[in-house]
Amino acid sequence: MRLNGGSAMNSMQTSGNGVLVIAEEFMLAELACAANGIANTEPVCAMVFGEPKLVTGFDKVFVVEKLTEYNTDLYTAAALDLIKEIQPSIVLIGATNQGRDLAPRIASALNTGLTADCTDLTLSKHGLLEATRPTFGGQLMAVIICKTKPQMATVRPGVFKPAESDKLPEIIYRDAPYVHPRVELLDFSEQPRKVNELETAEIIVTGGAGIGADGFRLLEEFAAALGAKVGATRGAVHTGLASAAQQIGQTGLTVSPKLYIACGVSGSVQHIVGMCGSKKIVAINIDPDAPIFQNCDVGYVGDIFEVIPQLMEKFCI
């Protein structure tokens, strides 16, 4: 992404043909809300695959009935066909696994820009879409403008509240252009995601790589005394001190206990994003400059091998 660009805005017109939403059923209502917020008076349309869904908040719903099962090639061809016909000025796609597979394929075929995983959408005073997205694991929010049409964005699930609307859409059935699919689904096994005990824990005690195996043994005792579960940083998991199921952070779990105690955790960005939703964060670290101290409620500079036994004495009384 570039900074402070915007010289070549001449290709952009503010008037257009509304907003097109392409999403799985569970995201249609929330994307209706997102789309109506940026549509001004222009039409808001949805494209759905398989059975027609009765969703309010759209002017038109285009249904491609025969494509029930997701396929990159087939869905891309169908979407391009519709986009070329109705010429929307903005296209929003759900940032699900499917949407993140589909959206860049469509955008690059149209040679237009795509902003991934947005958490906010607004219109600039020139009528341009301003899409806000987290970068660097959520530590920095970037507001991105696309200067070609359609302006495209994928929208993170759960960000927008499902729209309440009386607007009943006109349902329009469409055929999909024939393309030969080059990828074939052989098998699907549904796995409702296992709930990890850390996700429901009220108290979590987490260790970093620097505390070593002795440190993790101490954390187990500490956790037992507190009625807590033990989590770990990516570093600790990768050095074999803890299991992958214990990893908290960008590539691990996102947790939000009422009390999170970080022990010897430096506080990398990728760790912070997994635990910053905790109600109270207590940090103990021997390094007074550790970034964790900027992201905690209460910090204490000290060696966990001295601090934790003293704390346990207090809790055992």
Binding site: M1, R2, N111, G113, M141, V143, K147
Partner: peptide, 9 residues
């Protein structure tokens, strides 16, 4: 590049 970062926070 069709997209650019307008601002960040």
């Amino acid at each position: 590049s069709p997209t650019y970062v307008n601002r960040s926070f």
